[in-house]
């Protein structure tokens, strides 16, 4: 039986105005994400991957097209509606250190979302400890500042913060690109556990094809803001149909 569609992008586009010129960063991007599925979005730098991620998370407005979350259109969601969106969808950023307020501890960053959900101060502290533990970090990390932990540890804390909102979809925007291989492996193991045990759906943005191959069920290839190819990971990476994907695979593997 086909799983439910949890996230859908239809004809998504984004135009940035640069002086008098319009730059089309994303053009007519469409895809569907099903429950428990990991969709990889790959492409070279500047291909529009992160812009797509930010549009999906409503951190930037799209110029055209629509986004549906569990069948409900969220393209122009604001206020309370947007807060409801973030209970279902979370984004983990590329730069782990910069995604935490430098003047507040990691614990404070995790507790913020929990307190916003109505948890008491003590309940939020307890839950933050549990979330850190679930992501392979000790409770003591709650009292540390972003600059006091490694990139990998900070990224796991960022995943813990996202999980605190109990989302059904996690958008990972190049979350391993700033990490060394050991930290990359630990993050990947964490994501695989979440995918298998919690049936979370993922939009996994990366330019590392090996990681995408190890984690994603389907892959979407972007080039200059346009979709070049979409299919299962085996199809796209094993036997690419577009010339660009062939070049991308050849240069990576």
């Amino acid at each position: 039986m086909m799983e439910e569609i949890v996230l859908e992008a239809a004809h998504l586009s984004k135009v940035f105005r640069s002086g008098k010129q319009d730059v089309e960063a994303v053009e007519d991007v469409s895809f569907q994400l099903r429950q428990g599925e990991a969709l990889g979005i790959v492409g070279e730098s500047g291909s529009g991957k992160s812009t797509v991620a930010r549009m999906l998370a409503r951190l930037t407005d799209s110029s055209g097209g629509c986004i549906r979350l569990f069948g409900k259109e969220i393209t122009h969601a604001r206020g309370k509606e947007l807060r409801d969106v973030y209970r279902k969808l979370q984004l983990v950023f590329q730069t782990p250190g910069a995604s935490f307020d430098p003047r507040r501890t990691l614990g404070a960053g995790i507790r913020e979302g929990l307190r916003n959900q109505g948890l008491s101060r003590s309940a939020a502290a307890l839950r933050a400890g549990e979330l850190l533990k679930r992501c392979g970090l000790g409770k003591e990390y709650a009292g540390r500042y972003p600059h006091q932990v490694s990139g990998g540890e900070c990224q796991r804390a960022a995943v813990a913060r996202a999980l605190g909102m109990e989302p059904r979809i996690l958008i990972c925007d190049e979350i391993t690109s700033a990490l060394d291989v050991t930290a990359q492996k630990k993050i990947l193991e964490l994501l695989l556990t979440l995918k298998q045990e919690e049936k979370l759906s993922f939009v996994f943005i990366s330019h590392d094809l090996a990681l995408v191959q190890a984690f994603c069920d389907r892959v979407l290839v972007l080039y200059q803001g346009k979709v070049m190819e979409e299919g299962t990971t085996e199809e796209v990476i094993g036997s690419p149909s577009s010339e660009y994907t062939r070049r991308l695979v050849a240069s990576a593997l």
Partner: peptide
């Protein structure tokens, strides 16, 4: 547009809360 402000927004914090708790101290 810094990542931690976006993360705070995604944690469900409203504009005022972000301005007073995060932006002002920074």
């Amino acid at each position: 547009n810094s990542a931690y402000v976006m993360a705070s927004r995604m944690s469900g914090s409203g504009g005022w809360k972000i301005l007073i708790r995060h932006v002002l101290p920074n």
